[in-house]
């Protein structure tokens, strides 16, 4: 049993040593993005065209970083300013499912092909989910 504990500790310790620099890197980027991009910035991005706005929403949701709570607050504010619900929904879905800022860390830890595929697929799914959600909501 002691040998098993030692082995498990060693394996976890190695994973910790490998992961910490990557996690610190992401943390530095997330902190910078969180303070450098003011919340009011997002309302300036939309055009009024639902299709283009949903792509813009997904794009800026993808490059934004931080707590999902922040995306709900920004999203709520955007809806109040008249931005379409599809655009706002794709923004909040992409915020939580796509991570451009975390991408280097995801590539280093889970593989380049996997990380790129996951983020690209999640980007397009954000738009599809937004359209489906708003359409379903309209049927109720």
């Amino acid at each position: 049993m002691n040998e098993k504990i030692r082995k498990s500790l060693e394996k976890t310790g190695n994973a910790f040593k490998q992961s910490m620099p990557v996690l610190l890197l992401v943390l530095l980027l997330v902190s910078l993005a969180g303070t450098a991009i003011p919340k009011s910035f997002y309302s300036l991005l939309f055009t009024g065209n639902i299709f283009i706005d949903s792509m813009i929403g997904a794009f800026f949701g993808s490059i934004a970083a931080g707590n999902p709570l922040t995306s709900y607050i920004i999203g709520g504010e955007l809806v109040r300013q008249g931005i379409s619900l599809i655009a706002v929904t794709s923004f909040i879905v992409a915020w939580t499912t796509v991570g451009i800022i975390q991408l280097p860390a995801e590539i280093l830890m889970l593989g380049k092909r996997f990380a790129l595929a996951r983020n690209i697929v999640s980007f397009f799914l954000a738009v599809i989910i937004a359209v489906l959600t708003v359409l379903t909501l309209g049927m109720i």
């Binding site: 619900l85 929904t89 879905v93 499912t97 593989g111 380049k112 092909r113 996997f114 990380a115 790129l116 595929a117 996951r118 697929v121 999640s122 799914l125 599809i128 989910i129 489906l132 959600t133 379903t136 909501l137 109720i140």
Partner: peptide, 28 residues
């Protein structure tokens, strides 16, 4: 209503996301 619909879609699409990602990003 919005919250429930979105949450259900997110869970359903997580499976679709997994299948598609495995297909195109699983060759490593």
């Amino acid at each position: 209503e919005f919250t429930i619909i979105l949450t259900i879609y997110m869970i359903i699409f997580s499976v679709i996301n997994g299948i598609v990602v495995e297909k195109i990003g699983g060759g490593e």
